[in-house]
Design a binder for these strands. Structure first.
Length: 443
RNA sequence: CGGGGAGUAGCACAGCCUGGUAGUGCACUCGCUUUGGGAGCGAGGGGUCGGAGGUUCGAAUCCUCUCUCCCCGACCA
């Protein structure tokens, strides 16, 4: 993509409404436009990042047997009446009526819908286990939306729902999803930690939040430092129950809790003094087992191998996709702008023609651009006639992992400067090795 | 929902107290000079001052109502 043709409305100054850094940077880099409080339009640059995150999640979920579906944003009230949550949910739920006065709602979550799908179509234990997920917009009418997309009212979420015959199978499903989440966040370029969440009445120990450490986080977490050293991308084969169990326990047995269930005595008992640490954190995912809560109230039954009808055991696994965009920026930026982790960057490489109009610079920029495109590298070429300084600033702001400079220096030496955004490391390469080098990194 | 703040050009803001033809910087257009870290000079374009009502000869400015946005708190992926 050439910047001269790309819709990229960047700003030098951040709109005053934005207070946290990720929100400011998203507005300045032209990723989003606020529509109303907590509701945003996603412009091309932001939308690309959103899609990248979705794709990573999708691949990982598919790899543990998840099947993608898509449920509607608008739901009928009656299934919520049935589950008992129509009353319970309160004002966070956006309730609407259609032209014939039927009660509808904009879904804040999808347990009712998925349970309804399940009970209609699945009858036998032979159909289990089943893991369905979708990536869909949700709406919660928050008392106070804030922090840009990290706490919007409308937000994109991946949620999965698992169906198992009993608690034991459900636990295995839970563990698989837990490990899948670790891989997802690692592939997004994040250090995510599982944290024991408030278990509620049903879940027992099967409830974790996944958080990333960032100073603008909404909650405090207390944890054992050894968590930071565990490898989320372990190459172990997770098809064996015992291996899954072992891998899961390695993580789950490490102490980490949110401040709302923090207990000093317990903390001191389970964590040695040198390993105790705490940090602000942003919640980006949540996994939990909720047993038969919805299958019971909504009659989602399965016939087991003894011919008995039993309530199916369910779990739910959420990732805040749109929130992650903000969270990643909170986690990865500097005073110049965003620093995208490679896997979620909207483009991999930015080409800066520092002397637009110079025959050599124009020709070489175009050549590098075309060669990278052919090699399958996602590249954004700044072909505008802006001054060099403003191109540097703009490219640093939008945070692409690599920048290539073509200027009069290249004309003299035949070498092109490459800058690595995250480390500010710079080096010079000739045309062929430059193309090879970048192609290798991104393939 | 309680407490606080703000709505004036795409963005940041001044003007309001003390009513009298709406301004500055950035951005945008044109010209000249410049050209490896957000250039300089000159010339332009763009605003029913959030909305409604009122006071007044006259309202961005004073009064009343209203909408929206932001911040702190309780609540949340």
């Amino acid at each position: 993509m050439k910047i001269s043709e790309f819709f990229l409305p960047t700003l030098k100054e951040a709109p005053s409404e934005a207070k946290v850094i990720s929100h400011q940077l998203m507005l300045r880099s032209g990723m989003i436009k606020q529509s109303s409080a907590g509701i945003y339009s996603w412009l091309p640059l932001g939308f690309k990042v959103l899609k990248k995150i979705e794709d990573i999640i999708r691949k990982e979920q598919d790899s543990i047997g998840g099947q993608e579906i898509l449920m509607p944003t608008i739901q009928p009230a009656d299934i919520w009446v049935e589950s008992g949550r129509y009353e319970d949910y309160g004002q966070e739920m956006l309730r609407i009526k259609d032209r014939s006065n039927r009660e509808l709602l904009y879904g804040p979550t999808n347990e009712e819908l998925i349970t309804d799908i399940f009970r209609t179509h699945l009858k036998s234990y032979k159909d289990l286990p089943l893991l369905l997920y979708h990536i869909q917009w949700k709406f919660r009418d928050e008392l106070r939306p804030r922090y840009g997309v990290m706490r919007g009212r409308e937000f994109l979420m991946k949620d999965s729902y698992s169906f198992d015959l009993d608690l034991e199978q459900s636990r295995l499903t839970y563990q698989k999803n837990f490990l899948s989440y670790l891989r997802i966040f690692a592939r997004l370029g994040l250090k995510a930690l599982p944290v024991k969440a408030n278990p509620g009445p049903i879940g027992g120990d099967l409830s974790h939040e996944f958080v990333i450490l960032a100073p603008n986080g909404e909650s405090d977490i207390f944890f054992d430092k050894t968590l930071l050293e565990l490898d989320p991308l372990s190459k172990e084969n997770y098809s064996d129950k015992n291996i899954i169990d072992k891998a899961y326990n390695k993580w789950a047995q490490c102490y980490s809790v949110t401040d709302d269930i923090y207990n000093e005595k317990e903390y001191n008992q389970f964590v040695s003094p040198e390993n105790r640490t705490n940090s602000r954190a942003i919640e980006v995912g949540h996994v939990f087992y909720f047993g038969t809560k919805y299958s019971k109230s909504m009659g989602a039954n399965i016939i087991n191998n003894k011919g008995e009808s039993v309530n199916v055991h369910m779990g739910s696994y959420g990732i805040g996709v749109s929130r992650l965009v903000g969270a990643i920026i909170e986690y990865s930026h500097d005073d110049k702008g965003i620093i995208w982790p490679i896997n979620v960057a909207p483009f991999s490489v930015g080409i800066l023609n520092l002397k637009n109009g110079d025959e050599y610079c124009d020709r070489m920029s175009e050549l590098i651009y075309q060669n990278l495109l052919i090699a399958g590298v996602e590249v954004l070429y700044d072909d505008t006639s802006e001054r060099a300084g403003s191109k540097f600033a703009n490219m640093d702001l939008i945070g692409l992992p690599y920048q290539v400079f073509i200027g009069l220096k290249s004309k003299e030496t035949g070498l092109f400067e490459i800058k690595e955004r995250s480390t500010n490391k710079r080096y010079f390469l000739a045309l062929d090795s430059l193309i090879n080098h970048l192609t290798e990194i991104f393939n």
